[in-house]
Simulated assay, not measured.
Amino acid sequence: MDLEDLGPRLERAAGRVGPEVNRTVQQQARLLRAMIRWNASGRPGPNIITGQYFDSWRTEPFAVPDGGGAVIGTDRPQGRRLEFGFWDMTDRIGRHFFQPPYPHVEPAVNELSDEYRDAFKDALDRIFGGA
């Protein structure tokens, strides 16, 4: 590549950065949500009893300058308890509880980390490859 062409190539690529980053983030967020729900469909994660917890997982996209972001989560109170468990809890009326953890979020994040890196490498190729 000729260095004289670098400036114009970067200028042409600049318009593609925001849309490509946003597209990649949203795609990875949907994939992570699906993986979390898959892991929350039985052992070693939590079992599905009513389906309400499974259905409560949401992906909320948001805009950021030159890209996008997403929050993946649940508003159900049992989410933290199911993911991390609790080892020695006594409630207000004296009942004693032991809840083992049923991790379903962390395994999905760990499994997706290589995919996430590769997805952004592909986005960079799309941004700068057509410049």
Rank of each mutant, 00 (worst) to 15 (best):
M1R: 06
M1N: 08
D2H: 11
D2P: 10
L3H: 13
D5M: 13
L6I: 12
G7A: 07
P8C: 11
P8M: 11
R12G: 01
R12L: 07
R12C: 02
A13V: 04
A14P: 09
R16A: 04
V17T: 01
P19D: 12
V21T: 01
N22T: 15
R23H: 09
V25A: 02
Q26A: 14
Q26E: 13
Q27E: 14
Q27A: 14
Q28Y: 04
L31P: 03
L31E: 12
A34I: 06
I36W: 08
I36Q: 03
R37Q: 11
W38H: 14
N39V: 02
A40L: 09
A40E: 05
G42D: 08
G42T: 09
R43N: 06
R43Q: 11
R43I: 09
R43G: 08
P44M: 05
G45I: 00
G45D: 01
I49T: 12
I49N: 11
I49W: 08
T50F: 02
T50E: 03
G51W: 09
G51N: 08
G51R: 07
Q52K: 15
Q52L: 14
F54H: 13
F54V: 05
F54G: 01
D55W: 00
S56I: 02
R58S: 04
T59S: 14
T59W: 08
T59Y: 07
E60C: 06
E60I: 13
P61V: 06
F62N: 03
A63H: 12
D66K: 12
D66Y: 10
G67N: 02
G68M: 00
G68A: 03
G69M: 03
G69W: 04
I72C: 04
I72F: 00
G73F: 01
T74D: 02
T74C: 06
D75A: 09
D75S: 08
R76T: 12
R76Y: 11
Q78M: 15
Q78V: 15
G79L: 01
G79E: 01
R80E: 14
R80S: 14
R81L: 14
R81G: 10
R81Q: 13
L82W: 04
F84V: 04
F84R: 05
F86D: 02
F86S: 00
W87N: 15
D88N: 10
T90A: 10
T90Y: 06
D91A: 01
D91T: 01
R92Q: 13
I93P: 01
I93N: 09
G94W: 03
H96E: 10
H96W: 09
F97K: 06
Q99G: 08
Q99S: 12
P101W: 09
Y102G: 06
Y102N: 09
P103T: 01
P103F: 05
H104D: 02
H104C: 00
H104T: 00
V105Q: 01
E106T: 15
E106I: 15
E106G: 14
P107A: 10
A108M: 05
A108C: 05
A108D: 03
V109R: 11
V109L: 15
V109S: 12
E111I: 05
S113I: 07
S113M: 10
Y116M: 08
Y116I: 07
Y116D: 10
Y116V: 05
R117W: 14
R117D: 15
F120I: 03
K121G: 09
D122V: 14
L124F: 08
R126L: 02
I127M: 06
F128I: 07
F128W: 10
G129L: 05
G129N: 02
A131W: 05
A131T: 11
A131G: 15
